[in-house]
């Protein structure tokens, strides 16, 4: 086999170390030594402390001492540094943003008695639009596609008068979409 030949001739090639035990941070995805530059330092520290104390001590030698103090007082009670405040503000903002997300299911008249349904905002809930469009097409036996709207974001257009059915289907299929964030509207196209 050619593979064995490859191995036999391996001496000719420059060698490289092979590292297989690199720990990537579960919060910022960087190698843990770069967590300090990720902007989510406190979260990263917490994550690493829970995961691997020895590595934590190695990566954050300066924090090691305070760690014991933290354990006594409670992790979150450690004095708020500037960075922590920043991160918290960011998290709060994100939560706000999340609450403001809307899934709009709009019925658009095309000709008399015929209409299409525009579903916009589904991607905000982490749904793959292509798959969703396909699902709508099979469920309602009608044409359904992903199109760009004038704002540059993607909509799903469903060719059929199925506004209420979509509402129910969305609630059933994607539990992460809260009912109060779905909006049913009617409108004219263009």
């Amino acid at each position: 086999m050619s593979d064995t030949e490859d191995n036999a001739a391996a001496q000719e090639w420059p060698s490289t170390r092979v590292l297989t035990d690199i720990v990537y941070c579960g919060v910022c995805t960087l190698p843990v030594e770069y967590c300090e530059f990720a902007g989510t330092t406190t979260k990263c520290q917490k994550w690493l402390r829970n995961k691997d104390v020895a590595l934590f001590a190695k990566t954050w030698p300066a924090v090691d001492l305070t760690e014991k103090m933290d354990d006594a007082t409670l992790e979150e009670d450690s004095t708020l540094t500037k960075e922590q405040k920043k991160a918290e503000a960011k998290a709060a903002q994100e939560a706000k943003k999340k609450a403001a997300q809307r899934l709009i299911i709009k019925r658009v008249e095309r000709t008399k008695r015929k209409c299409v349904i525009e579903v916009s905002g589904l991607e905000l809930f982490g749904v793959d639009l292509k798959k969703a469009a396909k699902l709508f097409a099979t469920k309602f036996a009608c044409g359904s596609s992903v199109t760009k709207n004038p704002q540059g974001t993607d909509d799903i257009i469903v060719q059929g008068d199925v506004q209420d059915d979509i509402y129910d289907l969305v609630l059933d299929t994607w539990p992460q979409v809260p009912e109060e964030q779905i909006e049913l509207t009617e409108g004219k196209k263009k």
Binding site: S15, T16, V18, L19, P31, Y34, F37
Partner: peptide, 22 residues
Amino acid sequence: LHKFPDIMPQVQVDRGAIKFVL
């Protein structure tokens, strides 16, 4: 590259540059 760190030539930057490189 992390897995096979020595496959390509390396240069090293100082600590102050990390922030900007990232």
